[in-house]
Write a protein that binds this DNA or RNA. Sequence first.
DNA 1: CCTAGCCGACCGATCGTTCGATCGTCTAGG
DNA 2: CCTAGACGATCGAACGATCGGTCGGCTAGG
Lengths: 214, 214
Amino acid sequence: MAVNPTQTRIRNAAIRLFAKKGFHGVGIRELAQAAKVSPASLYHYIGSKEELLADIMWESLERLLSAAMLATTDVADPREKLGRLVTLHVVAHAVQSKETAVVDNELRSLAPKLRKRVIDKRDAYEQLWAETIEQGAEAGLFRSDHDGLARRALLEMCSGVARWYSTKGEIKLDTLASEFTDIALRSLGTGEAPPQPDMDRCRTIVKYTWGTKV
Amino acid sequence: MAVNPTQTRIRNAAIRLFAKKGFHGVGIRELAQAAKVSPASLYHYIGSKEELLADIMWESLERLLSAAMLATTDVADPREKLGRLVTLHVVAHAVQSKETAVVDNELRSLAPKLRKRVIDKRDAYEQLWAETIEQGAEAGLFRSDHDGLARRALLEMCSGVARWYSTKGEIKLDTLASEFTDIALRSLGTGEAPPQPDMDRCRTIVKYTWGTKV
DNA sequence: CCTAGCCGACCGATCGTTCGATCGTCTAGG
DNA sequence: CCTAGACGATCGAACGATCGGTCGGCTAGG
């Protein structure tokens, strides 16, 4: 999980370049130069270019999933649960926009074997959303979403943050999160004013999961 | 605009392959084979691989923009206007998922010169959304969106359709469009039940713009 | 004869990857 | 304390393959 400084440099360079140019748009030599190693040395740290991509994607999803589970276990109210899922998802895509963009865009660059591991993780994560929405529907708090249409719409909306949000822009992270939570809950809601989730708890989890950001 | 049958084959093959593997993931030999010409013959129809991509993206946006303008001119009610924008955007991303996916993902593969033309088109299109939302806000029908946050959220949500919707799935196109319109209007709305836009008019425009689909 | 369409052969460049060798560091045996 | 050797890290050079693109020439219809 990237403890070695050289490993970390390679990992970070790969995330930055893959996000900017796409997996196939980055050559090994360019990657090596950005990580300040020779192309040959690169292969002491990675199995192959593709494995490097798969590792990055899987670990990114692993962090997102564990953060989401941490935030939703023992939460009874589906509205609170969904609000936290949205907040974490949006904040993750805002502060880790590079690696989340890679996760969202580069699944196609993985051969079936490596792809499966990543897809399984992603499905496990999206399952959290599906369960939460279903619970809300059963409780009469959300409109039912038996096609998963609303879930997909909301996930795409929240993931899109990585494509346009800039931490240097005028929009504060808190504004972003609460606005998106609002939109999400009102999309699913039955009309009542949606409650805001426990922001402090989410902030703590974000800090714990992704480090010093936020 | 692709009247020649060989041009059309090349265009369609490029859209399909670029959407599936990404611009840098497709070689001209693979593209030529899919279009049933030799790699050399390819260059009787395209200036370069990159120009081919730029043309595809620009034309796709051109169609979307003209369809959107066609659907919104002389429409006074901002809610009706936005409903039609959402419907057209969603339907376009559903039935032309390949080329819209290319538009959404491959901007980074274009050198600045070619990129500008495409970005200008995209901005002109998004401007339509911005104006409509602003009109709605001034009329007191929408919550104001001075950061463009809601606009971006909705656009990402609607564009995401190209990533998951399948015309072979169980969700009907009408259901998709009306559900998304509903979500969009309730995201912006002040609480009243959102009106459904003129679906027949939208259907006509889709047919006129993208041909026999729908 | 001209031209549009088409293609085999080839261009230099770059692709992902491997190999063998050279470093400095650590450890075990005498 | 010295030394032999194992070890991880590093890299220059090169591998065959493929990259985007070009060129000269062939063919067929007007």
